[in-house]
């Protein structure tokens, strides 16, 4: 696990790591990968990939509107909002 990989992963997760944390996390990640790497030794040739361990299928919903607006409550959860919108830092192309 090199420094660059750790930086990429933390960027993708939008986590800012200081130097000490980064060193610790590099070790942790190495341990996790070594632990999971054991799975690579298992022969999975004839096994169909399993996307979900439950032996059930997805229930389906009728296409009718039952949800009501809870705009005021939802906007209160935002760090910043006005009467209509969630307000975020400027993101523009």
């Amino acid at each position: 696990m090199d420094n660059k990989t750790v930086e990429t992963i933390s960027y993708l997760a939008r986590l800012k790591l200081d130097k000490d944390k980064k060193e610790k996390i590099t070790k942790d990640l190495e341990n996790i990968i070594d632990f999971v790497a054991e799975l690579q030794d298992i022969n999975t040739e004839d096994i169909i990939p399993l996307s979900n361990p439950l032996e059930k299928l997805a229930p389906k919903r009728e296409d009718s509107v039952t949800s009501k607006s809870r705009k005021e409550v939802f906007l209160l959860n935002s760090p910043e909002s006005d009467q209509d919108y969630f307000i975020v830092p400027k993101v523009v192309e």
Partner: peptide
């Protein structure tokens, strides 16, 4: 939807 012209230095979001 992101809207960029509502405020000079902020973007707003309509979900």
């Amino acid at each position: 939807k992101s809207i960029h012209d509502a405020y000079p230095d902020k973007s707003v979001i309509d979900l």
